[in-house]
Design a binder for these strands. Structure first.
Lengths: 363, 363
DNA sequence: TTGCCATGAACAAACGATTGCCCTATGTTA
DNA sequence: TAACATAGGGCAATCGTTTGTTCATGGCAA
């Protein structure tokens, strides 16, 4: 460093309070109070004018890191998800950012790919970084790193994942009701062998949607054949493989309810590969109503949830928690709605499927 | 604050060097040197053991904010894009994060929705935050905030966007060549009225791909009818509207090359709405080969570029620039490849379209 | 003239970590 | 025995802000 005391930015733009103060011939603290509009500061008009002119000329912005250290707030939120490539999480993220930005926050995005190790690594970094809050939509709530969030008193909100302790701030939909809706729809279409592509048993959405599926079957007087449920996880690949297993059964299902649209998409591809027509030979329903669902041919019947609002609601809960000290309300649960498209159309002919696919998702 | 001097975390876990030092009965600086494995530290074995045991028990992690202030590095990168909901940017982000994570960096995601104001707001925040580097894949390179990145000496890399100054670190594909490839393909299929859904004239990809389109037409001895080009931007909606204009012409095109897969998807929907069969009545080609392209029916013919590698290459360039002080190489340009699917299939019948759609994108 | 009160800013102590330098014991060597 | 080297850590400045407190000055009333 050639300039030992006063560091000038390029183009001679000062970047620190100290430099600014030297130029204005006042003490740095005075400049700080002007910048922050400190009401306790009584300042002579000419002095204030001098400082403000300088601030404008130099476009000074306080160093956020130093500010973060002093004020103990970073104005950063973090979102931990399995994979941003999944359209569900893309829409979710937008909801989060759109609600966070107006309040001055920016958002770190952390993909875990469903790996507990990556999740733990991310959470540890986030804790060290002192992010102001975390939104968790990833799978592993037993992770000790999650507990350490609690212990560190880092505010957090869960999206689409209940924790076991059950008392965590939560945003999501009524998974049981949604799954019942979709399954009941398949029942009413006359199907009696209805398969289920399930999520992992370690994830609440997986468990609850399966429960809804089983409830709908029971209400219809249909026994839940365990053979008709195959674990697919939440990916297209998983959906394809699980569907393959189901379709290879001696008595394969004529309809499938998938835990997730992505799994349903996998099933759709698998059905096509097997030469089955959808919906004539196999009806398929998903969950979430991702944008892709309405663009497929046939359009995917699915359970619509307001993904973007999941994000913004979670964001707001988190920020309120950060500002206010505690959580209110503790949870936001949206009511899911069935969206019927071509993949389960009743007397589906080609035209019907096309029509249905033309509907735009409301997301 | 009840505890004035020594702040204990919950569960009595110390969180600062000072507390740790007090417990180990050594000076904080000594603890710091142990944590950072300072080679200049000569320390008695028992002392070291005492400190290390303490570090393990308490799971101490240095406060990243304080560290950032002192060391002038935040270990944060930022990505500025129009919209993460667009599959192209989802894949890009994963590439970036996957390359950044092993080197200890986490990544802020900033969506601009193509708004210069939002972009400027984001860039200003990022500068104030002292992020270590920025990857720009958004549209506005004239933005003064971008210049200020340069002025602040914040390292940055452009993805898929040339700046006018032309000397910025860049990652992307040869847009002219890619567009020529796609257009030439349409020419070879026998089309003579080939339309173009273009990007904005302010964005390099828009300009260059249009140039490639025109070059291919010229080579084929086809004049470029300006009426056959409509500005679509990079969104599905824009693509639909632009396609609508083209299809309403007295002599509408029989083939369309879209600047982007998303625009092509919009055109596909518009064609369907107009009762046109793809590819029989209208052939459509896109650019980027997003995952969606291979799942549509018919599959979308497109120009494949390695999106994930765009991200990882950009990430690596940026990190090298941060570590090394300057940029080498200044740019990475991938060679695009044509992927032919059902949307331009030659004597396409239903079956052919289906087959083509079954191919998985290599991304 | 003395005392008091605003006024207008400067002072200085944090926030938590890093790091060049200094200091104090103990051997070691001349 | 005096000078010196080395081991083992402590000291203190620094990164850039924020903020409670103190201080000097001048005006005004008594």
């Amino acid at each position: 460093m050639a300039d030992s005391n006063v560091n000038q930015g390029i183009y001679g733009m000062p970047v620190t309070l100290k430099e600014l103060a030297a130029m204005a011939k006042v003490h740095p603290s005075t400049v700080s109070r002007v910048v922050n509009h400190d009401p306790s500061l009584r300042i002579a008009a000419p002095t204030r004018a001098r400082i403000e002119a300088l601030l404008r000329q130099t476009e000074y912005r306080p160093n956020g890191v130093a500010r973060g250290l002093k004020l103990r707030q970073t104005l950063v939120l973090a979102v931990v998800i399995p994979d941003i490539t999944n359209p569900f999480f893309g829409a979710l993220f937008r909801g989060i950012e759109d609600a966070a930005a107006p309040r001055g926050y920016q958002v770190l995005l952390c993909n875990t790919d469903g790996s507990p190790d990556r999740q733990r690594a991310h959470l540890q970094s986030l804790a060290a970084r002192r992010v102001d809050g975390v939104i968790l939509a990833s799978s592993f709530l037993k992770d000790p790193a999650v507990r350490s969030l609690r212990h560190q008193r880092t505010p957090y909100v869960l999206v689409n994942r209940y924790s076991e302790e059950g008392m965590d701030p939560f945003v999501g939909s009524d998974d049981v009701a949604g799954a019942r809706l979709a399954t009941k729809h398949l029942v009413e279409l006359g199907h009696t062998r209805i398969g289920h592509l399930s999520g992992q048993a370690t994830v609440s959405t997986g468990v609850l949607r399966k429960r809804g599926y089983q409830a709908a079957l029971a209400e219809a007087g249909l026994g839940a054949d365990p053979e008709l449920t195959a674990e697919a996880g939440f990916t297209e690949d998983g959906g394809a493989r699980a569907a393959e297993r189901l379709l290879a059964l001696p008595e394969p299902p004529t309809a499938i309810f998938a835990v997730t649209d992505m799994a349903a998409v996998g099933a759709l591809g698998q059905a096509r590969k097997a030469g089955l027509r959808v919906p004539q030979d196999l009806a398929i329903a998903g969950y979430n109503d991702i944008p892709l669902a309405s663009r497929l041919i046939p359009g995917l019947t699915t359970v619509h949830v307001p993904i973007h609002e999941f994000g913004s609601a979670a964001s707001r809960m988190l920020l309120d928690q950060i500002d206010g000290g505690h959580v209110l309300p503790r949870s936001v649960v949206f009511t899911p709605q069935l969206v019927v498209r071509g993949s389960t159309a009743r007397g589906a002919d080609e035209a019907g499927a096309l029509d249905a696919s033309g509907r735009a998702g409301s997301e």
